[in-house]
Computed example of a mutant assay.
Amino acid sequence: MYQLLNGLSLVEVSSFVASPTIGLYCAQFGADVIRVDQIGGGQDFRRWPVNERGDSFSWENLNRAKRSVALDLTKPEGRELLVRLCQQVGTLATNLPAKGFLAHDKLAQGRPDMISVRVMGWPDGAIALDYTANAVVGYPALTGHGDEPVNHSLPAWDFITGAYGAFALLAAVQRRTATGLGGEVRLPLTDIAIGTVANLGRVAEVLYSGHDRPRLGNAVYGTVGRDFVTADGVRVMIVAINERQWQGLLRALDIGAAIAGIETRESVCFAENDGMRYAHRDAIFAVMEAAIAPLSHAELAERLDAQGVTHGPYKTLPQAMEDDRLFTANPMFAQCDSNPSGFAYPAAGAFATIPQMERAPAAPAPLNGQHTEQVLAEKLGLSSGEIARLIDTGIAGVAQ
């Protein structure tokens, strides 16, 4: 964690991945993020993976460094408290409907400079999830082999939306600081997905060519890259993405003569021409396979490292967690013994490294309602008696 956003307060009313990620990234840089949930936890409070008690490791890690307020949002008084809290703080991140009780125009009636960042499915308010957004923009049609779509398990559009949402929120805050103006930022998952696809050149590619690109299995589009198996059974991804790495690959595998033979046979030149190498990838891959097959993974890695060629063995997550660079000696991780689940383990802090600043360890997530009394007194100025009444009547909840 880094204290770069001290002074910024944010109310977060959200669930699942994209919207909580906005608050998480802000909290990791020092913002005071107040997560508001239904008493007992919202719809993502028990989301898998879970421990034997049903405590969610997903919720626990997406809500680190935040404060928690629990309200009964099924009751008008609970919703009114949340509206007042949003208006008092002045900044909101949510994935609740645009026309619900946290509609921006309603909040702005009591706070003209209100900022709302709202994660949505489709721009018109229709529901979409990461997995359905991924399906409609065509990426499952590019993975694997054959005719069936193949989903990947990483909710990439959720995380891209969360990161973009944190960026958009800070941009809106900067505008408010400069002009006094608030406003709403809407982030439809489908726009994030198709916009990212367009930024990668794929929309222009389809419009220009008139068709989609073929499935490539584990090959990398547009360059020399694929998985290969060593003599000791290790599967390795190798990518030569520029001329330096291409020449290094030829030296590392001692395949210069064989590649020259392909060039002569096909009347082409691979030097300084990544596209030509990609077009003749099958012939190149066959030469690479023959050169790699007799080598152990250790021998192959030594050769590729000596020539500056990018490579990496395929690992399971348990295997990855044995890697010093990734996990065991990575300063991004710090032991956290006070997790709501009761399970102590190294937790990830801010992904960025700022060499000029001291990195604070990852903070624990709150218990549901852990900061209800504190926030209601601090932000809304409620007396201890009024807070006690809200708790006794079930409008507000505290950690148990």
Score class of each variant (00 low, 15 high):
residue 71 L to Y: 06
residue 36 V to F: 06
residue 28 Q to R: 15
residue 276 M to N: 12
residue 353 T to C: 09
residue 82 L to M: 05
residue 88 Q to T: 15
residue 16 F to G: 00
residue 262 I to V: 10
residue 94 T to I: 05
residue 394 G to H: 06
residue 3 Q to T: 08
residue 301 A to F: 04
residue 98 A to S: 13
residue 86 C to G: 08
residue 266 E to W: 13
residue 357 M to T: 04
residue 317 L to M: 15
residue 204 A to N: 14
residue 155 P to M: 03
residue 218 N to M: 11
residue 184 E to M: 11
residue 217 G to Q: 12
residue 190 T to E: 07
residue 102 L to N: 01
residue 24 L to K: 10
residue 92 L to H: 03
residue 374 Q to R: 10
residue 145 H to M: 07
residue 123 P to R: 09
residue 318 P to E: 08
residue 388 A to V: 09
residue 194 I to L: 08
residue 316 T to M: 05
residue 209 S to C: 09
residue 138 G to H: 11
residue 192 I to N: 00
residue 195 G to H: 10
residue 220 V to G: 04
residue 78 G to I: 01
residue 209 S to W: 11
residue 129 L to M: 15
residue 373 E to L: 03
residue 295 L to F: 08
residue 256 G to W: 13
residue 246 W to I: 09
residue 303 R to K: 15
residue 171 A to L: 13
residue 39 I to K: 00
residue 333 F to I: 10
residue 136 V to K: 00
residue 68 S to F: 05
residue 304 L to A: 06
residue 354 I to E: 10
residue 281 R to M: 02
residue 145 H to G: 01
residue 343 F to M: 12
residue 230 T to C: 13
residue 136 V to N: 02
residue 249 L to G: 09
residue 55 D to S: 11
residue 334 A to W: 07
residue 241 I to Y: 12
residue 72 D to A: 00
residue 287 V to A: 06
residue 232 D to S: 08
residue 205 E to M: 06
residue 47 R to W: 07
